[in-house]
């Protein structure tokens, strides 16, 4: 009894400043509502967010588009000359689109090709690994919460930290070679082998993001009523048939979300790879975002206009992927309502 009283007393003490603040802002807000009406209030409350969105998303988008229509190395827009669609045509000038070396901007097409294969492989593996992980975590495991945390933990790490951790593991004098050496295996230069670095970037990004997608799928799995599985058990349904005919169809909405999110994220791959391999060796892990970054900011002959054009193109790809997600989501909703 006394605990309750104490708690409520503490609560009211803590809430006192809040109440005071509410009373202070109540007066001007009421008069504002009187002047503008309810719809005006909605605009008022939305304004801060729209302002931030406008300054940090919409405006850069427009500026970026303007940049893509200009040439030269200068950063200030005022010092740049208008070139129209020249940057876009430069990106698309190719002898054959299947051979990056025949293109004027061979680095762009190399990056596009690398990103394409990265996306295909990484997303496929991501879906499979996340699904298997979610299915395992959905079982009655001992210490289930612990395992969930273990798989989710990398998601919380900064991409740079992820890159550094794996660099320490994979470099010539890293943990992996040390471990292998204990078993008599000769150290290997994992990060200077073209094939291994490509595999490593896929593996590292899997490790870093898989927990997030597994969590979405796990939530989907847990939303499937247990009764359905019991009904299937009463019917003598084999586990494989349960998976294909019950689990997978019911998980499909979550699975589609995961596919699209993973796709978008894979197209944007940059930070952890940049820290881990720097895009090398050669151009083996040189992906699209790195091309944009280096073209615009890092190379000796920087070309912000070209980088802007490339990023607009990448943005278009992402818009298409997002629209697909929206379309699928709406179709799913309609289906659910039916």
């Amino acid at each position: 009894m006394s605990t309750t009283t104490n708690t409520s007393r503490l609560g009211s003490l803590l809430m006192a400043p809040v109440h005071l603040l509410m009373r202070i802002i109540d007066v001007p807000l009421r008069s504002l509502q009187k002047a503008t009406g309810i719809s005006g209030m909605a605009a008022f409350f939305l304004a801060p967010n729209m302002l931030i969105f406008g300054i940090f998303v919409l405006l850069p988008l427009v500026i970026n588009f303007v940049y893509s229509m200009t040439g030269g190395t200068a950063f200030f827009l005022a010092e740049r000359n208008f070139v129209g669609a020249e940057q876009y045509s430069r990106l698309f000038t190719c002898g054959s689109y299947l051979d990056p070396m025949s293109c004027q901007e061979d680095a762009f097409w190399t990056a596009v090709g690398n990103t394409f294969w990265f996306v295909i492989l990484q997303v496929t593996l991501m879906i499979l690994v996340a699904l298997v992980t979610a299915l395992i975590l959905n079982r009655d495991l001992a210490a289930r919460s612990f395992w969930r945390a273990v798989f989710f933990f990398p998601v919380l790490l900064s991409p740079v930290v992820v890159g550094l951790i794996w660099k320490w593991i994979l470099q010539r004098q890293g943990l992996l070679n040390f471990g292998l050496y204990q078993f008599g295996v000769e150290p290997y230069t994992w990060l200077t082998d073209r094939n291994w670095t490509f595999v490593a970037t896929i593996g590292v990004s899997l490790w870093a993001h898989m927990g997030f997608y597994a969590l979405i799928l796990l939530a989907g799995l847990q939303a499937i009523p247990k009764d359905l599985y019991e009904a299937a058990e009463m019917d003598g349904t084999k586990p494989a048939r349960v998976f294909w005919r019950i689990t997978l169809p019911l998980l499909m909405p979550n699975l589609l979300v995961v596919v699209v999110l993973a796709l978008i994220r894979a197209v944007q791959i940059f930070d952890e790879v940049y820290v881990l391999t720097g895009g090398g060796p050669g151009t083996s892990t040189f992906y699209l975002t790195q091309y944009i970054y280096e073209t615009g900011f890092a190379s000796a002959l920087r070309n912000p206009g070209l980088a802007a054009a490339a990023s607009i193109l990448m943005g278009l790809v992402l818009v298409v992927l997002t629209l697909i997600q929206l379309g699928i989501g709406q179709r799913g909703e309609k289906k659910g309502k039916r």
Binding site: P225, D227, L228, E230, A231, E233, M234, D235, G236, T237, R245, I246, P249, L250
Partner: peptide, 19 residues
């Protein structure tokens, strides 16, 4: 096993496959 007992169950939630 449940399947081999030759019984059928009607669940409180009906447990119909929604898809």
């Amino acid at each position: 096993t449940a399947a081999d007992r030759g019984l059928a169950m009607v669940f409180q939630s009906y447990a119909l496959y929604p898809h």
